[in-house]
Amino acid sequence: MTREGRIGDITDFSDGAVSRQASARIAVATPGPGFTEITEVVAAFLARSGITQGLLTVFCRHTSASLTIQENADPDVRTDLMTALDGLAPRHGAYVHGSEGPDDMPAHIRTMVTDAGLAVPVVGGRIGLGTWQGIYLIEHRDRPHRREVLLHVAGQ
């Protein structure tokens, strides 16, 4: 006997037509390694776009910083995530690439594991995040940087 999963009710939010799009570039100043929340600036961009249903793309233009959607209620989560990333890609590992310093190759590994881009639904003019979710740029290098993030939304 096979057990099948169940899918809950499906709510249709729109007819799927893409009639508008908007894009922007934001600069994010990081204090060094760690998570910098960008949810509010992304939400402000979305509000200015006037798009109420669609898909929002957030893209980091760097190979040593990345993006994630993560819990924004308890900062201990972000502390533990940085500890996990430190264990996965330690600063002073036996890497071949080291011309940009001991923090560069681990930063590339951490970016590969997290990601450079996010796709988030837009529902009712708001970012379709869960209650405790936020959008973060993760700085993987040891010193502060100015990072560029591209935003694009398409929808109605």
Score class of each variant (00 low, 15 high):
residue 31 P to W: 11
residue 51 I to R: 01
residue 47 A to M: 15
residue 34 G to T: 07
residue 81 L to I: 14
residue 40 E to S: 11
residue 39 T to P: 03
residue 21 Q to K: 09
residue 73 A to W: 10
residue 21 Q to Y: 12
residue 56 L to I: 08
residue 26 I to A: 05
residue 29 A to G: 08
residue 64 S to L: 11
residue 30 T to E: 12
residue 16 G to S: 08
residue 66 S to Q: 02
residue 58 V to R: 03
residue 72 N to D: 13
residue 71 E to I: 10
residue 22 A to H: 12
residue 35 F to A: 11
residue 52 T to M: 15
residue 64 S to A: 14
residue 82 M to V: 10
residue 82 M to T: 10
residue 59 F to E: 10
residue 73 A to K: 01
residue 80 D to S: 03
residue 56 L to Q: 12
residue 50 G to H: 10
residue 68 T to H: 08
residue 34 G to C: 04
residue 21 Q to I: 11
residue 18 V to M: 04
residue 80 D to G: 01
residue 57 T to W: 12
residue 59 F to R: 03
residue 73 A to E: 13
residue 20 R to L: 15
residue 30 T to Y: 08
residue 50 G to C: 13
residue 43 A to L: 10
residue 75 P to G: 02
residue 27 A to R: 10
residue 51 I to L: 07
residue 58 V to N: 06
residue 40 E to L: 09
residue 23 S to D: 13
residue 55 L to M: 14
residue 27 A to W: 04
residue 21 Q to A: 15
residue 19 S to M: 07
residue 46 L to A: 11
residue 29 A to Y: 13
residue 24 A to K: 02
residue 66 S to I: 11
residue 81 L to E: 13
residue 75 P to M: 02
residue 27 A to K: 03
residue 51 I to C: 09
residue 17 A to N: 06
residue 59 F to I: 13
residue 75 P to C: 02
residue 27 A to Q: 08
residue 54 G to N: 08
residue 29 A to N: 05
residue 32 G to W: 13
residue 25 R to M: 12
residue 25 R to I: 14
residue 42 V to C: 15
residue 22 A to Q: 04
residue 67 L to G: 08
residue 61 R to P: 04
residue 41 V to M: 12
residue 49 S to Q: 12
residue 54 G to E: 06
residue 36 T to K: 00
residue 49 S to R: 05
residue 73 A to I: 12
residue 69 I to W: 08
residue 45 F to V: 13
residue 82 M to K: 03
residue 60 C to W: 06
residue 26 I to F: 06
residue 48 R to P: 00
residue 69 I to F: 14
residue 66 S to W: 00
residue 37 E to S: 00
residue 56 L to H: 03
residue 69 I to M: 13
residue 72 N to C: 14
residue 63 T to G: 06
residue 31 P to S: 15
residue 67 L to R: 00
residue 77 V to T: 05
residue 55 L to P: 05
residue 69 I to V: 15
residue 55 L to Y: 08
residue 61 R to Q: 12
residue 50 G to R: 07
residue 77 V to K: 02
residue 17 A to S: 12
residue 65 A to P: 00
residue 27 A to S: 10
residue 19 S to R: 04
residue 34 G to W: 02
residue 67 L to N: 06
residue 48 R to W: 08
residue 41 V to P: 02
residue 57 T to C: 13
residue 55 L to C: 09
residue 17 A to G: 04
residue 23 S to R: 09
residue 82 M to N: 02
residue 27 A to E: 15
residue 74 D to T: 03
residue 45 F to E: 08
residue 23 S to L: 13
residue 65 A to N: 07
residue 31 P to K: 11
